[in-house]
């Protein structure tokens, strides 16, 4: 396999291998906390923290871990960083922690993180793993941003809490409900595939 340039190692996470839209990973948090843009971004940043640090640690110690216990070891590493993220949020960003609820600990089972350790960090250098993690995180945050923007603007008429739709607009409550999350993500996936097929053709 030819080695990619550092640039494309990062960019692939944004579109070609976008964890949510293309790889269909990390759906649980994507659906759960995208009711408002602020919670979507907060979750994205927390996941970024865990993904980048876990990838760096795993890439550093990969030679020391026997293959049979690698999954268990990765899990301990990931779980530790998730715990730290959870504690820091509770201590310094209490309102956000309340809004995200049990979904911060659930970052530990976000398939994106374990997936990247298994597929990349365990086989690549620390530097590349860092860039890969950064790219995947950016792609994830991008997906959360798009989904939560749609849901907040249409569901509450606001963006980051600021009124953006005029008084004439009656919010589509369904957008805030679970149903709205599912449907919006489904449509966004469809759009992503549509764009993909159109660009492939030309």
């Amino acid at each position: 396999m030819a080695t990619k340039s550092i640039g494309s190692e990062y960019l692939k996470g944004l579109w070609d291998e976008n964890p949510v839209f293309r790889q269909l990973l990390g759906m649980c948090p994507t659906l759960a906390v995208t009711g408002t843009v602020i919670t979507g971004i907060a979750m994205g940043l927390a996941t970024t923290f865990v993904l980048i640090l876990s990838s760096i640690v795993v890439a550093s110690i990969k030679k020391l871990i026997p293959a049979q216990v690698r999954i268990a070891s990765y899990i301990v590493v990931i779980a530790s960083f998730v715990t730290i993220a959870d504690q820091v949020l509770k201590a310094y960003f209490y309102p956000i922690s309340e809004a995200l609820g049990p979904y911060v600990p659930l970052i530990v089972v976000n398939c994106i993180i374990l997936g990247r350790q298994e597929a990349f960090a365990s086989k690549n250098s620390i530097g590349r793993s860092f860039v890969d993690a950064l790219g995947m995180s950016s792609g994830f945050v991008l997906a959360l941003l798009i989904l939560s923007s749609v849901r907040e603007i249409l569901g509450a008429g606001t963006f980051l809490g600021y009124q953006v739709m005029g008084a004439w607009f009656k919010p589509w409550i369904i957008m805030i409900l679970p149903a709205g999350a599912f449907i919006t993500l489904g449509i966004l996936l469809g759009i992503a595939l549509l764009i993909e097929s159109k660009t492939k053709r030309s």
Binding site: P66, V69, A72, S73, V76, S80, T83, I84, Q87
Partner: peptide, 20 residues
């Protein structure tokens, strides 16, 4: 390996817990 990983992260977490 497992025990070491466990102990290191456990210790680390205990430290963070104390701080927060």
């Amino acid at each position: 390996v497992l025990t070491t990983v466990g102990l290191i992260s456990g210790g680390f977490l205990a430290g963070v817990a104390k701080l927060t």
